[in-house]
């Protein structure tokens, strides 16, 4: 697969808020470096680029959309679900949902290491609002 066309598409997708490209970059501390973002998210480069062209799964159709994205991007569900779950929270925070604010705060707290002792995983997509 030639990456050039896909890479250019991903760059252009950054300007389309309906696609995941720009939002994915917000998940890491290196938003300027797409390859670093892919690496941090544990994604193959081509898969990352394809994921950037996708839209957010619909809350009403979460699991089915997740499966379709997984197939289209060749990212396995255990890797994909937490990424999209976090993105969902991030976008809901943007939209000002109190539940999502709470969810994001909880996630940040856990990621800081302070709340990770119970071993829980907050990436379950079913917990999304």
């Amino acid at each position: 697969m030639s990456d050039h066309m896909l890479e250019r598409a991903e760059t252009l997708a950054l300007e389309n808020p309906g696609l995941l490209a720009a939002h994915l970059r917000r998940l890491t501390n290196t938003p300027q470096d797409a390859r670093a973002v892919a690496l941090q998210l544990g994604l193959e480069w081509d898969s990352y680029l394809l994921l950037a062209l996708c839209r957010m799964p619909r809350a009403t159709n979460w699991q089915e959309d997740l499966n379709e994205i997984s197939e289209a991007t060749r990212v396995d569900l255990p890797t994909l679900a937490p990424i999209l779950s976090k993105l969902g929270a991030l976008l809901a925070v943007d939209a000002g949902s109190p539940w999502s604010l709470l969810l994001a705060a909880r996630r940040d707290y856990r990621q800081s290491g302070a709340g990770n002792s119970d071993g829980e995983d907050d990436s379950d997509p079913d917990r999304e609002p």
Binding site: R55, R58, E68, A72, T73
Partner: peptide
């Protein structure tokens, strides 16, 4: 219809014939 994976699928499908 807003199917989330559709842009990636269509991109993959059209790239070769378009090029």
């Amino acid at each position: 219809e807003g199917r989330p994976a559709a842009p990636a699928v269509l991109f993959q499908a059209c790239r070769k014939p378009l090029l």
